[in-house]
Design a binder for these strands. Sequence first.
DNA 1: AAGGGGATCAACCGCAATCCC
DNA 2: GGGGATTGCGGTTGATCCCCT
Length: 272
Amino acid sequence: MGRCPCCSKEGLNKGAWTAQEDKILTDYIKTHGEGKWRTLSQSTGLKRCGKSCRLRWLNYLRPDIKRGNFSDQEEDLIIRLHKLLGNRWSLIAGRLPGRTDNEIKNYWNTYLVKKFQESSAKNQRAKSMRSEEPVLEEKAKPSPAEEFIVVRTKASRRTGLVAPPARAAPEAPTTELTTEPMGNYNESMANDTEPTSFKAPILMDFDMEDFSIDNEILKSYGEFLLQNKDDEIDTLSLSSQKTLSFDSGEWVGEEFEGEHFSQDLYSLGYFL
DNA sequence: AAGGGGATCAACCGCAATCCC
DNA sequence: GGGGATTGCGGTTGATCCCCT
């Protein structure tokens, strides 16, 4: 284990890629396809390590990469996914076609974190204006970004996340709501950016073989909907024809049938 | 006009899982 | 089955850009 041998090799180029290097890399991948990065760097004569080639391709040269600013919808989706997934940038990027994990990570660290800090400071000022109580107690409260505590270990491929069922599913009547496919992101959802409305559970690593992420997310999210059904359901009552019911702690609906559903994180999009 | 400082983002680093001989 | 090689990921760095004084 330890450090990748190729990184320590001498004679390899570092730093910004030249147009010529880009062309060599692009041409090779067009011919041979992705993968085998080490072989690629050797057979093309590129004085770059395999990791560097891979990164350059994935983050910059790939033809399907979307450039430009993040839209409001994308931003909102990132915020919501980050609440659920934590710093799983590759997973988040998987839900944003054309965006790379690196791009999303940078966007989060530069823009969204700041945005959270500002809104949290605003809230704090507003509260302290309203109350004569010292702000000391407020200080103990986490900012919206911090509120959704993400406890995680170093990234690992065989791990995922779990939303532990800390609270028992509420005894509630069947609640109906509609869903729509992820591609049709609803405008009203973009407006619902209040980060504190969804009490995300603590995230932790788990073994994919032991857990089904969606079951847990569905339980927790269903609970959230039930607790907030008066004012929140509308944000999810989209124009779709698909019907989803929450019954006895489980989601029921035509879109959610089949044993493979719970293994596919794609379903998460239905709730965002 | 210059330069200082903050913001941005491409690229690197190190770790861990998986592959493969 | 063991161990080195490879791949994938998140965290961090540093070069460059841009704005303000």
